[in-house]
Amino acid sequence: MRPYIPLGAYLALMALAFALPEYSKQIASIAFYMALGQAVNIFVGLTRYVNFGYAAFLGIGAYGLGAAILYMPQLGIATIPIGLALGMGLAALLALTVGAIALRLRGAYFAIATIGLNEGIKHLIIGANIWGGGAGLMLGSSMFKVYGRDLALFLANVGSAALILLTGLISVLAMYFIQAGRAGYALAAIRQDEDAAKVMGINPTRYKLLAFVTSAVLSGLLGAAFFSLGNMQVFPENVFFIDYILDGLAVMFLGGAGTVTGPIVGGLIYYGARYLVGIYLPGLQSLITSLIVFLVMLFLPNGIVGTLNRRSEGLRTWLP
Protein backbone atom coordinates (compact mmCIF):
# COMPACT_ATOMS: atom_id res chain seq x y z
CA MET A 1 0.00 0.00 0.00
CA ARG A 2 1.13 3.59 -0.51
CA PRO A 3 3.40 4.84 2.29
CA TYR A 4 1.27 7.88 3.05
CA ILE A 5 -1.69 5.69 4.08
CA PRO A 6 -0.22 4.30 7.35
CA LEU A 7 1.66 7.51 8.12
CA GLY A 8 -1.47 9.59 7.52
CA ALA A 9 -3.57 7.28 9.70
CA TYR A 10 -1.27 7.73 12.70
CA LEU A 11 -0.96 11.49 12.22
CA ALA A 12 -4.75 11.86 11.91
CA LEU A 13 -5.34 9.92 15.14
CA MET A 14 -2.66 11.98 16.88
CA ALA A 15 -4.41 15.20 15.82
CA LEU A 16 -7.70 13.80 17.15
CA ALA A 17 -6.10 12.98 20.50
CA PHE A 18 -5.07 16.63 20.95
CA ALA A 19 -8.26 18.09 19.47
CA LEU A 20 -10.61 15.81 21.46
CA PRO A 21 -8.88 15.06 24.77
CA GLU A 22 -12.07 13.60 26.22
CA TYR A 23 -11.70 10.70 23.74
CA SER A 24 -7.96 10.28 24.21
CA LYS A 25 -8.34 7.02 26.18
CA GLN A 26 -10.36 5.40 23.38
CA ILE A 27 -7.84 6.64 20.82
CA ALA A 28 -5.02 5.26 23.00
CA SER A 29 -6.70 1.83 23.12
CA ILE A 30 -7.11 1.74 19.33
CA ALA A 31 -3.55 2.94 18.82
CA PHE A 32 -2.22 0.34 21.27
CA TYR A 33 -3.48 -2.55 19.15
CA MET A 34 -2.25 -0.92 15.96
CA ALA A 35 1.22 -0.20 17.36
CA LEU A 36 1.47 -3.63 18.97
CA GLY A 37 0.66 -5.23 15.62
CA GLN A 38 3.27 -3.03 13.93
CA ALA A 39 5.97 -4.00 16.46
CA VAL A 40 5.16 -7.71 16.14
CA ASN A 41 5.11 -7.39 12.35
CA ILE A 42 8.70 -6.13 12.19
CA PHE A 43 9.99 -9.48 13.40
CA VAL A 44 7.27 -12.08 12.86
CA GLY A 45 6.03 -10.60 9.58
CA LEU A 46 9.50 -10.32 8.06
CA THR A 47 10.94 -13.62 9.30
CA ARG A 48 7.86 -15.83 9.89
CA TYR A 49 9.42 -16.80 13.23
CA VAL A 50 6.69 -16.75 15.88
CA ASN A 51 7.80 -15.02 19.09
CA PHE A 52 5.79 -15.61 22.28
CA GLY A 53 7.92 -13.25 24.36
CA TYR A 54 6.47 -9.85 23.48
CA ALA A 55 4.78 -9.34 26.84
CA ALA A 56 8.23 -9.44 28.45
CA PHE A 57 9.35 -6.50 26.29
CA LEU A 58 6.15 -4.58 27.02
CA GLY A 59 6.60 -5.17 30.73
CA ILE A 60 10.29 -4.36 30.95
CA GLY A 61 9.70 -1.11 29.04
CA ALA A 62 6.90 -0.17 31.45
CA TYR A 63 9.15 -0.85 34.44
CA GLY A 64 11.90 1.32 32.95
CA LEU A 65 9.71 4.42 32.85
CA GLY A 66 7.96 3.53 36.10
CA ALA A 67 11.26 3.18 37.97
CA ALA A 68 12.49 6.54 36.66
CA ILE A 69 9.30 8.33 37.78
CA LEU A 70 9.22 6.68 41.22
CA TYR A 71 12.91 6.58 42.15
CA MET A 72 14.27 9.71 40.45
CA PRO A 73 11.72 12.46 41.25
CA GLN A 74 14.52 15.03 41.66
CA LEU A 75 14.95 15.04 37.87
CA GLY A 76 11.50 16.58 37.35
CA ILE A 77 10.03 16.32 33.84
CA ALA A 78 13.32 14.81 32.65
CA THR A 79 12.20 11.52 34.23
CA ILE A 80 10.04 10.87 31.16
CA PRO A 81 12.75 10.90 28.43
CA ILE A 82 15.20 9.20 30.81
CA GLY A 83 12.61 6.56 31.73
CA LEU A 84 11.69 5.94 28.10
CA ALA A 85 15.37 5.53 27.21
CA LEU A 86 15.83 3.18 30.19
CA GLY A 87 12.82 1.08 29.19
CA MET A 88 13.96 0.78 25.58
CA GLY A 89 17.52 0.03 26.69
CA LEU A 90 16.36 -2.76 29.00
CA ALA A 91 14.16 -4.20 26.23
CA ALA A 92 17.10 -4.09 23.80
CA LEU A 93 19.41 -5.77 26.33
CA LEU A 94 16.86 -8.51 27.01
CA ALA A 95 16.31 -9.05 23.27
CA LEU A 96 20.07 -9.23 22.60
CA THR A 97 20.55 -11.74 25.40
CA VAL A 98 17.65 -13.96 24.39
CA GLY A 99 18.04 -13.51 20.64
CA ALA A 100 21.74 -14.33 20.54
CA ILE A 101 20.86 -17.79 21.86
CA ALA A 102 17.30 -18.53 20.73
CA LEU A 103 17.64 -17.21 17.16
CA ARG A 104 20.05 -20.03 16.38
CA LEU A 105 16.98 -22.26 16.62
CA ARG A 106 14.36 -22.49 13.88
CA GLY A 107 10.61 -22.60 13.54
CA ALA A 108 8.74 -24.27 16.38
CA TYR A 109 11.93 -24.68 18.42
CA PHE A 110 12.40 -20.91 18.53
CA ALA A 111 8.74 -20.38 19.47
CA ILE A 112 9.04 -22.90 22.31
CA ALA A 113 12.22 -21.20 23.55
CA THR A 114 10.40 -17.86 23.92
CA ILE A 115 7.29 -19.21 25.69
CA GLY A 116 8.79 -19.08 29.17
CA LEU A 117 10.34 -15.61 28.77
CA ASN A 118 7.33 -13.68 30.10
CA GLU A 119 6.78 -15.90 33.13
CA GLY A 120 10.49 -16.05 33.86
CA ILE A 121 10.91 -12.26 33.97
CA LYS A 122 7.67 -11.82 35.94
CA HIS A 123 8.64 -14.34 38.62
CA LEU A 124 12.15 -12.89 38.80
CA ILE A 125 10.70 -9.44 39.59
CA ILE A 126 8.25 -10.86 42.12
CA GLY A 127 10.61 -13.35 43.75
CA ALA A 128 13.60 -11.01 44.02
CA ASN A 129 11.35 -8.09 45.05
CA ILE A 130 12.70 -5.92 42.24
CA TRP A 131 10.83 -2.65 41.52
CA GLY A 132 8.22 -3.27 44.19
CA GLY A 133 7.97 -7.02 43.56
CA GLY A 134 4.42 -8.36 43.53
CA ALA A 135 3.03 -5.04 44.78
CA GLY A 136 4.12 -3.31 41.56
CA LEU A 137 4.67 0.41 41.12
CA MET A 138 1.99 2.98 41.96
CA LEU A 139 2.95 6.12 40.04
CA GLY A 140 -0.05 8.44 40.47
CA SER A 141 1.05 10.28 43.60
CA SER A 142 4.64 10.60 42.36
CA MET A 143 3.48 12.03 39.04
CA PHE A 144 1.22 14.56 40.82
CA LYS A 145 4.13 15.67 43.04
CA VAL A 146 6.75 15.81 40.28
CA TYR A 147 4.70 17.26 37.39
CA GLY A 148 1.74 18.87 39.10
CA ARG A 149 -1.83 17.59 38.95
CA ASP A 150 -2.86 19.20 35.65
CA LEU A 151 0.27 18.20 33.73
CA ALA A 152 0.19 14.68 35.18
CA LEU A 153 -3.42 14.17 34.04
CA PHE A 154 -2.62 15.63 30.62
CA LEU A 155 0.33 13.24 30.25
CA ALA A 156 -1.77 10.28 31.40
CA ASN A 157 -4.50 11.02 28.85
CA VAL A 158 -3.35 12.97 25.79
CA GLY A 159 0.39 12.44 26.27
CA SER A 160 0.03 8.67 26.54
CA ALA A 161 -2.15 8.47 23.41
CA ALA A 162 0.29 10.66 21.45
CA LEU A 163 3.27 8.55 22.54
CA ILE A 164 1.53 5.31 21.60
CA LEU A 165 0.74 6.75 18.17
CA LEU A 166 4.32 7.98 17.85
CA THR A 167 5.49 4.42 18.59
CA GLY A 168 3.30 3.14 15.76
CA LEU A 169 4.62 5.88 13.47
CA ILE A 170 8.23 4.95 14.26
CA SER A 171 7.36 1.29 13.67
CA VAL A 172 6.05 2.14 10.21
CA LEU A 173 9.24 4.02 9.35
CA ALA A 174 11.39 1.19 10.75
CA MET A 175 9.50 -1.31 8.61
CA TYR A 176 10.03 0.79 5.49
CA PHE A 177 13.75 1.29 6.13
CA ILE A 178 14.33 -2.40 6.86
CA GLN A 179 12.41 -3.59 3.81
CA ALA A 180 14.06 -1.07 1.48
CA GLY A 181 17.63 -1.84 2.55
CA ARG A 182 20.03 -4.76 2.51
CA ALA A 183 18.36 -6.21 5.61
CA GLY A 184 15.02 -6.44 3.79
CA TYR A 185 16.48 -8.51 0.96
CA ALA A 186 18.38 -10.68 3.43
CA LEU A 187 15.26 -11.33 5.52
CA ALA A 188 13.25 -12.11 2.37
CA ALA A 189 15.87 -14.68 1.38
CA ILE A 190 15.90 -16.15 4.90
CA ARG A 191 12.11 -16.32 4.89
CA GLN A 192 12.09 -18.26 1.62
CA ASP A 193 14.98 -20.67 2.32
CA GLU A 194 17.36 -20.07 5.23
CA ASP A 195 19.86 -22.72 4.14
CA ALA A 196 20.07 -21.29 0.61
CA ALA A 197 20.48 -17.78 2.05
CA LYS A 198 23.38 -18.98 4.20
CA VAL A 199 25.06 -20.55 1.17
CA MET A 200 24.76 -17.21 -0.65
CA GLY A 201 26.77 -15.52 2.12
CA ILE A 202 23.94 -14.15 4.28
CA ASN A 203 24.34 -14.41 8.05
CA PRO A 204 20.78 -15.37 9.16
CA THR A 205 21.35 -14.84 12.88
CA ARG A 206 22.63 -11.30 12.32
CA TYR A 207 19.62 -10.12 10.33
CA LYS A 208 17.08 -11.96 12.46
CA LEU A 209 18.65 -10.37 15.53
CA LEU A 210 18.35 -6.92 13.93
CA ALA A 211 14.61 -7.38 13.39
CA PHE A 212 14.19 -9.00 16.81
CA VAL A 213 15.88 -6.17 18.73
CA THR A 214 14.09 -3.46 16.71
CA SER A 215 10.75 -5.10 17.46
CA ALA A 216 11.63 -5.47 21.15
CA VAL A 217 12.71 -1.83 21.55
CA LEU A 218 9.47 -0.58 20.02
CA SER A 219 7.48 -2.96 22.25
CA GLY A 220 9.31 -1.56 25.27
CA LEU A 221 8.45 1.99 24.23
CA LEU A 222 4.82 0.95 23.76
CA GLY A 223 4.68 -0.66 27.20
CA ALA A 224 6.08 2.48 28.83
CA ALA A 225 3.54 4.70 27.06
CA PHE A 226 0.51 2.50 27.72
CA PHE A 227 1.08 1.20 31.25
CA SER A 228 3.38 3.61 33.09
CA LEU A 229 2.27 6.87 31.51
CA GLY A 230 -1.33 6.03 30.58
CA ASN A 231 -2.37 3.93 33.58
CA MET A 232 0.06 5.48 36.09
CA GLN A 233 0.74 2.04 37.54
CA VAL A 234 2.75 -1.08 36.71
CA PHE A 235 1.66 -4.46 38.09
CA PRO A 236 3.55 -7.61 37.04
CA GLU A 237 0.32 -9.57 36.56
CA ASN A 238 -0.93 -6.94 34.11
CA VAL A 239 2.14 -6.05 32.07
CA PHE A 240 3.30 -9.67 31.60
CA PHE A 241 -0.18 -10.80 30.54
CA ILE A 242 0.16 -13.41 27.79
CA ASP A 243 -2.99 -12.20 25.99
CA TYR A 244 -1.01 -9.22 24.68
CA ILE A 245 1.13 -11.63 22.65
CA LEU A 246 -1.94 -13.23 21.13
CA ASP A 247 -3.47 -9.79 20.46
CA GLY A 248 -0.38 -8.62 18.58
CA LEU A 249 -0.24 -11.78 16.46
CA ALA A 250 -3.98 -11.60 15.76
CA VAL A 251 -3.78 -7.96 14.62
CA MET A 252 -0.81 -8.71 12.36
CA PHE A 253 -2.32 -11.81 10.71
CA LEU A 254 -5.74 -10.14 10.42
CA GLY A 255 -4.33 -7.19 8.48
CA GLY A 256 -1.58 -9.03 6.64
CA ALA A 257 1.81 -10.23 7.86
CA GLY A 258 4.74 -8.41 6.29
CA THR A 259 2.63 -5.47 5.10
CA VAL A 260 2.98 -1.98 6.57
CA THR A 261 -0.69 -1.01 6.34
CA GLY A 262 -1.92 -4.40 7.58
CA PRO A 263 -1.54 -3.79 11.35
CA ILE A 264 -3.49 -0.52 11.04
CA VAL A 265 -6.42 -2.23 9.33
CA GLY A 266 -6.11 -5.25 11.61
CA GLY A 267 -5.92 -3.08 14.74
CA LEU A 268 -9.03 -1.10 13.82
CA ILE A 269 -11.05 -4.24 13.08
CA TYR A 270 -9.75 -6.13 16.11
CA TYR A 271 -10.42 -3.30 18.56
CA GLY A 272 -13.82 -2.61 16.99
CA ALA A 273 -14.82 -6.27 17.28
CA ARG A 274 -13.69 -6.50 20.92
CA TYR A 275 -15.46 -3.25 21.78
CA LEU A 276 -18.78 -4.27 20.24
CA VAL A 277 -18.66 -7.79 21.67
CA GLY A 278 -17.86 -6.31 25.09
CA ILE A 279 -21.04 -4.22 24.91
CA TYR A 280 -23.47 -6.84 23.63
CA LEU A 281 -21.83 -10.14 24.72
CA PRO A 282 -19.56 -9.30 27.67
CA GLY A 283 -17.11 -11.99 28.61
CA LEU A 284 -16.96 -13.47 25.11
CA GLN A 285 -14.46 -11.03 23.57
CA SER A 286 -11.58 -13.50 23.31
CA LEU A 287 -13.77 -16.28 21.91
CA ILE A 288 -15.48 -14.22 19.21
CA THR A 289 -12.42 -12.20 18.14
CA SER A 290 -10.48 -15.47 17.85
CA LEU A 291 -13.26 -16.82 15.63
CA ILE A 292 -13.09 -13.69 13.46
CA VAL A 293 -9.32 -14.05 13.05
CA PHE A 294 -9.76 -17.76 12.23
CA LEU A 295 -12.34 -17.03 9.53
CA VAL A 296 -10.22 -14.28 7.97
CA MET A 297 -7.16 -16.54 7.91
CA LEU A 298 -9.25 -19.37 6.45
CA PHE A 299 -10.66 -17.35 3.56
CA LEU A 300 -7.95 -14.63 3.31
CA PRO A 301 -4.72 -16.45 4.28
CA ASN A 302 -2.60 -13.39 3.45
CA GLY A 303 -4.73 -11.10 5.61
CA ILE A 304 -6.96 -8.30 4.40
CA VAL A 305 -4.28 -5.94 3.09
CA GLY A 306 -2.07 -8.78 1.85
CA THR A 307 -4.96 -10.20 -0.19
CA LEU A 308 -5.82 -6.78 -1.63
CA ASN A 309 -2.17 -6.27 -2.62
CA ARG A 310 -2.01 -9.64 -4.36
CA ARG A 311 -5.27 -9.06 -6.22
CA SER A 312 -4.19 -5.59 -7.36
CA GLU A 313 -0.91 -7.06 -8.66
CA GLY A 314 -2.84 -9.75 -10.51
CA LEU A 315 -5.16 -7.12 -12.01
CA ARG A 316 -2.23 -5.04 -13.27
CA THR A 317 -0.85 -8.03 -15.16
CA TRP A 318 -4.05 -8.12 -17.23
CA LEU A 319 -4.11 -4.39 -17.94
CA PRO A 320 -2.36 -2.93 -21.02
Rank of each mutant, 00 (worst) to 15 (best):
K25N: 13
Q26L: 12
I30E: 02
A31I: 04
Y33R: 02
Y33P: 00
M34L: 10
M34D: 11
A35M: 10
G37I: 08
A39W: 06
I42W: 03
F43T: 10
T47G: 06
N51F: 11
G53F: 08
A56G: 05
A56Q: 03
F57G: 04
G61V: 09
G61M: 10
G64R: 04
A68Y: 01
A68P: 00
Q74H: 13
G76Q: 12
I80D: 11
I80A: 09
P81E: 15
I82H: 04
I82A: 14
G83Q: 12
G83L: 09
L84G: 06
A85H: 10
G87P: 10
G87W: 12
G89R: 12
L90G: 01
A92F: 04
L93M: 12
L94V: 13
A95I: 08
L96E: 02
L96S: 02
T97K: 00
V98A: 00
G99K: 07
I101C: 01
I101S: 09
A102C: 09
R104C: 05
L105Y: 11
G107Y: 07
G107I: 10
Y109F: 10
A111C: 05
A111H: 11
I112P: 03
L117C: 07
G120S: 14
G120R: 00
I121G: 01
K122A: 12
L124T: 09
I125G: 03
I126G: 03
G127K: 04
G133S: 00
G133R: 04
G134T: 05
G134V: 05
G134C: 01
A135E: 13
A135R: 14
L137S: 02
G140W: 07
S141E: 15
S142K: 06
M143E: 13
K145L: 14
V146T: 15
V146Y: 15
Y147H: 04
D150Y: 11
L151D: 08
L151W: 03
